Amino acid sequence: MAGTVAGMAAYIRARIERGTLAPGDRLPPTKNLMQQFNLSDNAVYRAVGLLKAEGLVVSQQGKGVFVADRRALISGERRIKGIVQPGEVINHKSSTRVEPPVWVQEQLGEGEAVRRVRTITRGDVVLQASQSWVHTDVAAVVPEIDQPQACDPTWQAVYAERAGKKVTAASKTVDARISTDEDKAALGLDEDAPLIVMRSIYVSEDRVIGVGEGVYAPGQQVALA
């Protein structure tokens, strides 16, 4: 009995949502998918096209079709609403009031900020280590940021709802650096490695209220949407 394009797409979509197909995993070759779902090659291409349109998979020329790192592709308001994918866990490490680095002060202004440190893991693997510096004025509206705990779904979304002020990711920059001792400890690395770093600036009413820095483990992809 012949399968359907929608059926193949639904099956693969469900595996991605459950986390049994993880970001970076390669889909079986077209021939295998044709046999598995009893479809023509054209029908398989159409099913894969549906998954691509949803941002679930990406093609790499000459290599195949891979599950997309959707966390890396989420930006702006969508990122503020939540950043983890199925099977991933946010682990909040600490939340302390500190004098932030100079590059952060250039955005937030001088004085203390709330520094929140966390990792994102899948099982025992650390995918990303991140820290954010949040203006202390935000704590008057979202006191949870002074505690090493999650804000549901994010502190930006909670602030926007409680204060009635829109929060936007005003800018994002991607750079690379050789891992520092702090990076290696956070990501569980034994040796120095080149790492991708993404920095974000969060603005409300033309005022910067937070700055974030995410450091991705080797092999994790990041892209600006």
Rank of each mutant, 00 (worst) to 15 (best):
residue 44 V to M: 00
residue 44 V to G: 00
residue 44 V to F: 00
residue 44 V to N: 00
residue 44 V to P: 01
residue 45 Y to S: 06
residue 45 Y to D: 02
residue 46 R to F: 00
residue 46 R to E: 06
residue 46 R to V: 04
residue 47 A to M: 02
residue 47 A to V: 02
residue 48 V to I: 15
residue 48 V to N: 01
residue 48 V to H: 01
residue 48 V to Y: 01
residue 48 V to Q: 02
residue 48 V to K: 02
residue 48 V to L: 02
residue 49 G to E: 13
residue 49 G to D: 13
residue 49 G to I: 11
residue 50 L to C: 09
residue 50 L to N: 14
residue 50 L to R: 14
residue 50 L to W: 12
residue 50 L to E: 15
residue 50 L to I: 10
residue 50 L to K: 11
residue 51 L to R: 14
residue 51 L to P: 15
residue 51 L to W: 14
residue 51 L to K: 14
residue 51 L to A: 14
residue 52 K to M: 15
residue 52 K to N: 08
residue 52 K to H: 12
residue 52 K to P: 03
residue 52 K to A: 12
residue 52 K to R: 15
residue 52 K to T: 05
residue 53 A to C: 04
residue 53 A to P: 03
residue 53 A to Q: 15
residue 53 A to D: 15
residue 53 A to I: 02
residue 53 A to T: 05
residue 54 E to C: 10
residue 54 E to N: 10
residue 54 E to I: 07
residue 54 E to V: 09
residue 54 E to G: 14
residue 54 E to A: 15
residue 54 E to R: 08
residue 54 E to M: 15
residue 55 G to H: 13
residue 55 G to F: 14
residue 55 G to R: 08
residue 55 G to A: 13
residue 55 G to S: 12
residue 55 G to M: 13
residue 55 G to P: 11
residue 56 L to W: 11
residue 56 L to E: 12
residue 57 V to G: 06
residue 57 V to P: 06
residue 57 V to D: 07
residue 57 V to R: 04
residue 58 V to H: 08
residue 58 V to K: 06
residue 58 V to N: 05
residue 58 V to W: 05
residue 58 V to T: 09
residue 59 S to R: 10
residue 59 S to E: 07
residue 59 S to T: 10
residue 60 Q to R: 12
residue 60 Q to D: 04
residue 60 Q to A: 06
residue 60 Q to I: 07
residue 60 Q to S: 04
residue 60 Q to N: 02
residue 61 Q to C: 00
residue 61 Q to G: 05
residue 61 Q to W: 04
residue 61 Q to Y: 06
residue 62 G to V: 06
residue 62 G to K: 05
residue 62 G to P: 05
residue 62 G to A: 06
residue 62 G to W: 05
residue 63 K to Q: 12
residue 63 K to H: 08
residue 63 K to G: 02
residue 63 K to C: 03
residue 63 K to N: 06
residue 63 K to I: 02
residue 64 G to W: 08
residue 64 G to C: 08
residue 64 G to K: 11
residue 64 G to F: 07
residue 64 G to A: 08
residue 64 G to Y: 07
residue 65 V to W: 14
residue 65 V to D: 06
residue 65 V to Y: 12
residue 65 V to R: 10
residue 66 F to E: 10
residue 66 F to A: 10
residue 66 F to R: 13
residue 66 F to Y: 15
residue 66 F to T: 10
residue 67 V to E: 13
residue 67 V to F: 12
residue 67 V to H: 12
residue 68 A to K: 03
residue 68 A to S: 15
residue 68 A to N: 10
residue 68 A to V: 04
residue 68 A to C: 06
residue 68 A to D: 13
residue 68 A to M: 09
residue 69 D to F: 09
residue 69 D to M: 07
residue 69 D to K: 03
residue 69 D to L: 05
residue 69 D to A: 08
residue 69 D to S: 09
residue 70 R to S: 10
residue 70 R to Q: 15
residue 70 R to K: 11
residue 70 R to T: 14
residue 70 R to Y: 07
residue 70 R to C: 07
residue 71 R to V: 01
residue 71 R to T: 06
residue 71 R to C: 03
residue 71 R to W: 03
residue 71 R to H: 07
residue 71 R to N: 09
residue 71 R to S: 08
residue 71 R to L: 04
residue 72 A to W: 01
residue 72 A to D: 00
residue 72 A to M: 00
residue 72 A to T: 01
residue 72 A to E: 02
residue 73 L to S: 05
residue 73 L to I: 00
residue 74 I to T: 07
residue 74 I to R: 09
residue 74 I to A: 08
residue 74 I to L: 09
residue 74 I to V: 04
residue 75 S to T: 08
residue 75 S to F: 04
residue 75 S to N: 08
residue 75 S to C: 05
residue 75 S to D: 07
